[in-house]
């Protein structure tokens, strides 16, 4: 994971602090788009990979399973998903939202059932789209 501490190894020590930052850094209420990302990381933090998978967009989940040749929960266990760091801001346009954290950017998308994580572990590139650790097609 490019030199960052894996989520799995960071769980025990930093969980509370990370959850505080992911959930809005003191903001009183998440937007629905933020809630999807927050819920995903919270589920990972509590070891509920199955719950975390439920917060992924279907295409993202499909790509994750395809690229790892594992089902989604096991693929997430194998992935070294890191803490995104402190929440910075969220930008929403229609069915899409970009949530920027200190360490990475997350893209979420809206379905009729609610917002789901489309890409995470994203870092900007000099040219072109973000490079993401996990994403849909």
């Amino acid at each position: 994971m490019k030199g960052r501490q894996p989520w799995v190894s960071a769980r025990a020590g930093a969980a509370v602090a990370i959850l505080a930052t992911v959930s809005g850094c003191g903001s009183s209420q998440d937007t629905p788009a933020e809630t999807a990302a927050t819920s995903f990381y919270r589920a990972l933090d509590t070891g509920d990979e199955t719950g975390a998978c439920a917060w992924l967009a279907p295409k993202t989940r499909e790509e994750l399973e395809k690229s790892s040749s594992k089902d989604c929960p096991n693929a997430l266990r194998a992935e070294t998903v890191t803490s995104p760091g402190a929440f910075r801001d969220v930008t929403v346009y229609g069915t899409m939202a970009q949530i920027r954290y200190a360490e990475e950017t997350v893209f979420v998308t809206r379905f009729r059932s609610g917002w789901r994580v489309m890409a995470l572990g994203c870092t900007p590139q000099a040219v072109g789209p973000y490079d993401c650790e996990i994403k849909g097609a």
């Binding site: 967009a57 279907p58 295409k59 499909e62 069915t95 998308t109 809206r110 379905f111 009729r112 789901r116 489309m118 849909g136 097609a137």
Partner: peptide, 9 residues
């Protein structure tokens, strides 16, 4: 949206 696996309105 469906072609790229995104949500419907």
């Amino acid at each position: 949206q469906a072609a790229v696996g995104l949500g419907q309105l």
